[in-house]
Design a protein around this nucleic acid. Structure first.
Length: 442
RNA sequence: GGUCCCUUCGUCUAAUGGUUAGGACUCAGCCCUUUCACGGCUGCAAUAGGGGUUCGAAUCCCCUAGGGAUCACCA
């Protein structure tokens, strides 16, 4: 069993693309199959190596490893062969309309209320007419001749599906400039690399119907097909329209963790509860393509943030120390255990580091109280009882208790309304820093 | 405009003709912690609308409304 993820290197991976990659990867791993990464770079005008590298980088960051890599740009001759086969079988035919003519035709069809389907006028051309046009220097593009019948398939996600092909234009498979079009290239690759299952977005539904006929015309049969419902943003709008801050690259910069992203994307839209997983193997174990529903799930960044926090609470110091080493500050296990319950994103680590070790703006609007706090602060070396010793004494001296006692201390020492356990914080912070903060009477 | 798909608490969904319509997240409240968070408990909250079929409909049928996808010499 073999699946593929086939991005075109025309932009950065966003949360929607990546979900398709992840589902393919999980499906393969769950079934001991092969996960192929295929770079669909036949559109030379829009494809860039920078994007290809970025896609690989993103996948690697997400711990999605591929078992093989192919690039369509290195397989162009295969596509020419396939076109010849189709031509011989009379399932492909040359067309001579210009792009402008076609676009004009579509517009007039649309404005007269008709579906903008290609009228097959080039199909009516005789061999001599074709030869004549070619001799005049006209270069043809080629279309695949569809059979106007119902195409049926049992979709891995959608169940029994059918599409009537008379609602579709014969797809262009080779451009006037000789470059292959995705519709054909994809099918040729899937045949040559023996792909058994295609999982992709439901935006490919009509492509799939046409491609099923293409598989058959090329003497093969269609792989199993599954069409995932497209992710939308929280208001129900498609993600692709405004993928601004939803690229993997941006999420990484914002401090989101791969496991939080994968945990969410492997479960959103399924009947399972969304929760954080510790590692990718757990996600694989729990994966089931049958649990994906037909309606469009919403991607909620708040939900992602919650999972992200949970990840930090769960992760062991040893398992994250490599990542912590990428920061230009030293993170001890003591510090990590102190703050791990209070961080939402990776970037919060540095935020707390500054609070504990660095310089911050604190909030101190009760100088009488902080003066008293300074006075009662134990002089001997700090231990785990220091906090309770200190606050007990301070309680007696100030007559305060509960929130009135603790909140000003927290604010003065950290500048924050909430944060780690004060007893631990004080211990990690040390006496000198505390004195400095209590004296910060501006 | 044609075609296809979708619609259950705010969110993700369960319930494939008989349930007090269940769970999870969020939210609210309480408990715990001499503060916040974590955790525990409790609670709020849904079958898009209208017609049928049936003893009985979230579930089957029809209509309406809303949303999405697609209809490229992009992928």
């Amino acid at each position: 069993m073999k699946v593929r993820f086939a991005p075109s290197p025309t932009g950065y991976l966003h949360i929607g693309n990546f979900r398709t990659a992840l589902v393919n990867f999980l499906f393969a791993r769950k079934n001991n199959g092969h996960f192929m990464l295929r770079i669909d770079d036949t559109d030379q005008e829009r494809s860039f190596i920078e994007y290809e590298n970025a896609i690989k980088e993103d996948l690697s960051w997400m711990n999605i490893g591929w078992d093989s890599l192919e690039k369509q740009s290195s397989r162009l001759s295969c596509y020419d062969n396939a076109l010849q086969i189709l031509l011989n079988k009379k399932r492909a035919y040359p067309c001579f309309e210009t792009a402008d003519e076609l676009s004009l035709k579509r517009k007039s069809q649309l404005s007269s209320g008709k579906p903008p389907i290609y009228d097959r006028s080039s199909l009516k051309l005789s061999d001599s007419e074709i030869a004549d046009l070619k001799s005049k220097g006209k270069k043809p593009h080629y279309r695949f001749l569809l059979n106007h019948i119902d195409v049926n398939w049992d979709d891995l996600v959608k169940g029994q599906s059918k599409y009537n092909m008379s609602n579709l234009s014969d797809p262009v498979i080779l451009r006037e400039d000789g470059r292959v079009i995705y519709t054909l290239a994809s099918v040729v690759d899937d045949i040559d690399f023996a792909v058994t299952d295609i999982l992709r977005g439901e935006d490919h539904m009509t492509n799939s119907a046409a491609q099923i006929q293409l598989f058959e015309a090329l003497g093969s049969s269609s792989p199993r097909l599954g069409h995932l419902s497209l992710l939308t943003d929280i208001s129900g709008e498609g993600l692709s329209k405004r993928l601004g801050s939803l690229s993997l690259k941006d999420l990484r910069q914002e401090g989101f963790q791969p496991m939080a992203i994968s945990s969410l994307l492997s479960k959103v839209g399924t009947s399972d509860t969304i929760d954080i997983f510790k590692n990718i193997n757990q996600i694989i174990n729990d994966f089931d393509i049958n649990k994906f529903g037909k309606s469009k799930p919403k991607f909620d960044k708040v939900e992602l943030l919650n999972l992200n926090s949970k990840f930090f609470q769960l992760v062991k110091f040893d398992d994250i120390s490599d990542q912590l080493n990428t920061l230009d500050i030293e993170i001890t296990i003591e510090f990590w255990n102190l703050i791990k319950g209070n961080i939402n994103t990776f970037n919060d680590i540095k935020f707390w580091w500054n609070i504990v070790y660095g310089k911050i703006k604190t909030i101190n609007d009760d100088h009488e109280f902080t003066h008293l706090a300074l006075k009662t602060l134990p002089n001997d070396s700090f231990d785990k009882n220091t906090w309770s010793t200190w606050t007990s004494l301070l309680m007696k001296e100030s007559g305060r208790k509960g929130k009135d006692l603790f909140k000003p201390l927290r604010l003065c020492l950290t500048g924050q309304n909430n944060g780690p356990e004060m007893a631990n914080l004080v211990l990690t912070m040390g006496r000198q820093k505390i004195v400095e903060r209590l004296n910060n009477n501006d």
